[in-house]
Write a protein that binds this DNA or RNA. Sequence first.
RNA 1: CGGGGAUUGGCGCAAUUGGCUAGCGCGCAUGGUUUGGGACCAUGAGGCUGCAAGUUCGAAUCUUGUAUCCCCGACCA
Length: 472
Amino acid sequence: MSKNQLADFKTNLSEWYNDVVLKAELADYAPVKGCMVIRPYGYALWENIQKFMDVLIKKHGVENAYFPLFIPMSYFEKEKEHVKGFAPELAVVTVGGGKELVDKLAVRPTSEMMMYDLYKKWFGSWRDLPVRINQWCNVVRWEKRTYLFLRTSEFLWQEGHCAHLTHEESIAEVQWAIKMYAQTYSELMAMYGIMGYKSESEKFAGGFKSITFETLMPNGKSLQSCTSHDLGQNFSRSIEWSVQDATGSKTMPWQNSWGFSTRSIGGLIMSHGDEKGLVMPPNIAPTQIVIIPIPGHNTALSKATEIQNNLNNYRVKIDDKAGETAGAKFNKWELKGIPLRIEIGDRDMTSGTVIICRRDTSEKITVKFEDLSKTIDKLLKDIQQKLFDKHKKFTIDNTFKADSYDEFKKIMETSRGFISAFWCEESECEAQIKTDTKATTRCLPLDAIEENGKCVRCGKKSSHRWLFGLSY
RNA sequence: CGGGGAUUGGCGCAAUUGGCUAGCGCGCAUGGUUUGGGACCAUGAGGCUGCAAGUUCGAAUCUUGUAUCCCCGACCA
């Protein structure tokens, strides 16, 4: 701990990941299996995601609400595919107030059944549609194997649940949601990813079609980073929710749901990190600038305070903690990934300059006092853009076309990454590919073009290239 | 949930043919000298060895159970 030693980023990503999450104080393990404590620095990331996304959600006309944590087990049983998908990972409350419960309560793994039951009660006319409700909450899924942020038994997310009179309107919203997520990833988190349809076997349990946003991690694994589901009329049919249309006859609403979780923070950490630790994109960084008055230089602190006051459009911290050398402070904040560091000492006081160091390139720049604000604005924007460009380039550089099964296998054995290959869309082929190579279908990209191709495994006629990869 | 490994001050580790007051480094506190890339000296605080039982004159060490973590699989945002 003294040197904040991290495992090697390049050769040992998963250990590096655990080290950096714990040492940068993003999160810690809880005494309960598979659960994590999100510490203030990690929670600040989530708050910034919430702030950014909540504006976009509300602008679309979605209102926030809150539904109960407990869902009667009987609710789940109404939608067969849904219960089949979630039953294995449900946490169930069987005792309440010291008494065995007659109706067991599931701790929500997602809120479709609970929310739609109320929709049915509240909305009976076509004039009530569309319904647009979102909630920020926690959910519990009893996962077999957990991983900080990426897969924990309890996690935080938002889940939007909308209903429309027509399938077209609902589909448009499913697309809106995934694009809104992509925007959050790129503009806030400087991450690039691929939007696309999930295969039948990978789609949301009980849904009609799912769209995912897949991001590529440095070890060539793909992270399902959020999803937007076209539920068709499956749920309204299951719970027998219909509204009266303009002619007085009954029609079942078309529904969709979409979710974005704290898993995204795990993706953020890996996508930009390096051997020194975290690298925070400025827009999401809880602290964008740290000012370090060189210890022992007496006038430095008051100048640091003055600089901080002049930079009140930014999230700025001064580190004047006693007893640490400048070098120790530098390393501490680099581990936490603060985008810009300002060093100020006696030398700068006489020259009228400060030194700015950027986290992403380690480049040091000398800047005059009067140019500081302008320069910082430019640098923060540049870092944000460069990080996004870098992640996009990495993703594209690690997306390979495979036109034969041998080629496919070879890629999986060596570089991994996304594999773009024709697939006949038969689940047998999908399963066999997984058995042979560990790769699963990640998605059919929204912008995939129709082609005359042959399935990479069975050779049957295939119209589109799907993306395959090793999933997180 | 199956296979493997682990758990000893905040962190990383040491201490078994069962034996003395459980050590060391880092961190932390206090004082001093330092201070532009992980400083140094001195003094000091901090442990019923994950938890629960058992064997024994005696358990960090042996036995059983249990919890949690890590790695590899099957399941997933």
